[in-house]
């Protein structure tokens, strides 16, 4: 087994020859605070290849969520730029799926219809939604089966547990076959057992979808379990201080958590997190 690579990364990713899907180019973020501009993020430069799963970990308040909002284009980067296939992101991308810590399902729709929502909005699905509805429902049902919610299609959000809602929200994030899956601490509010179960399901969904996964988390085990690369952020003003390549075989299992290798990754990341 190879030793985990822990390298200081300030110059972006090297060694991977393919065209990156996402590039961060000296990205920064400032926020007005008590009359002055306070730097939250500075000089984040990295790139993400198609099919990669990356995590951002770091102390709270280091702007992890802001990174996600910048990538999605919901709040585009104003300092530096993030490029998607070479194009600067300055408005919401259409081919992303997002799952937040709060699963935000629409309470007036049952599970199945919640999952179908993106297909009513995203082209080309939207165009023939009524014609293809049967096929779309089948797609939704397949996803729901993957997360073992097949028997809860007709239930409304308030009839589901927190973990079930989060699983449904993952399905919703993936049904329109996005190129980028953005996860903003999606398992933060779940209990430890449910959370680990969610890791396995997320990995399964991501491997099926073959998309880029970007996870924001403060759970280092979660980051190690799911990621190809873990980016460690420093306290404010934060930047990427470490990039850890996780070289565990896929699909990863919960048993792997007990291996020395897993724990080696965990502790090498843990040592690099500096609290404010």
């Amino acid at each position: 087994m190879t030793q985990p690579i822990t390298e200081l990364d300030t110059s972006g990713l090297s060694g991977n020859t393919g065209e990156p899907l996402l590039e961060f180019d000296h990205v920064g973020l400032e926020y007005p605070f008590e009359g002055a501009m306070r730097t939250i993020i500075q000089d984040v430069t990295l790139s993400i290849q198609p099919g990669e799963f990356v995590s951002f970990v770091g102390p709270s308040g280091c702007g992890k969520t802001s990174i996600l909002r910048m990538v999605s284009g919901l709040s585009p980067a104003r300092i530096g730029e993030i490029r998607y296939r070479g194009q600067r992101i300055n408005r919401p991308l259409k081919n992303v799926g997002i799952a937040f810590q709060n699963p935000v399902m629409l309470p007036w729709r049952n599970t199945l219809n919640n999952v179908l929502l993106p297909l009513e909005i995203v082209e080309p699905f939207k165009r023939d939604f009524s014609k293809q509805k049967a096929r779309y429902i089948q797609m939704a049902q397949e996803l729901l089966t993957t997360v073992r919610l097949q028997d809860f299609q007709k239930q409304y959000p308030w009839q589901l547990s927190g973990g079930m809602r989060q699983r449904a929200s993952l399905c919703r994030a993936l049904i329109h076959q996005p190129e980028i899956l953005l996860l903003d601490e999606p398992f933060g509010a779940l209990d430890a057992f449910t959370r680990e179960e969610m890791w396995v399901m997320t990995q399964k969904l991501w491997m099926q979808a073959k998309c880029v996964g970007i996870l924001i988390t403060h759970d280092l085990r979660e980051a190690v379990f799911l990621s190809d690369y873990v980016y460690v952020m420093s306290p404010r003003p934060s930047t990427i201080i470490h990039r850890v390549k996780i070289d565990l075989p896929r699909p990863r299992t919960l048993e792997m958590e007990l291996t020395d290798e897993f724990n080696h990754y965990f502790s090498s990341i843990r040592q690099n997190i500096h609290h404010n």
Partner: peptide
């Protein structure tokens, strides 16, 4: 909820 709007906006609604 702003997050609900975000879900839709991120789909390009």
């Amino acid at each position: 909820e702003p997050e609900m709007k975000d879900v839709l906006r991120s789909l390009g609604a």
